[in-house]
Amino acid sequence: MIEIVLFYVGAVAAILGAAGVVLARTPLRGALWLIFTLCAVAVLYLLLEAPFVAAMQVLVYAGAIMVLFVFVIMLLNLGPEAGARPAYVSVAKASGLLACVYLGWRLVAALSGSGQKAVDGSVKNIGVLLVTDYLFAFEAVSVLLLVAVVGAVVLGLRRLS
């Protein structure tokens, strides 16, 4: 009962937040709506008994990555969009909506009736899975991140010299 109520609260909040991201006129408000959406999705993760994923969602996305987004928007001092919008915007909107509806339909079709019980989402379980079944993906991701860090350092050094 309480889970169902929380699910609807989280789900509606996530959808409203996503709508806010699209409809916001200032980039900063859009970014803040995105943070709201991410937190709402974290609530859904909690209801799926994946507290670790939920905490990571808030810590990494809402707390760090989105803060950097907001930081950059503030640094560039972006104001609200001004002037008439070009004609292709409405076409882009329509195709985006179509793609969204199609994706939603495929997702529902793929997930409904599968009834698969999720594995225990505890920290220990995730840790064990990361270094056994998903070791290759885990290491590949860490190499990818290392490349990104090296790239950032190289770019920063070039700017200095």
Partner: peptide, 20 residues
């Protein structure tokens, strides 16, 4: 919570958004 420490670190990170 069984993720207690992580929870504190995550939830206090929200305060930054308020400051910004």
């Amino acid at each position: 919570l069984n993720i207690g420490l992580l929870y504190v670190l995550a939830i206090t990170a929200i305060a930054v958004v308020g400051v910004l």
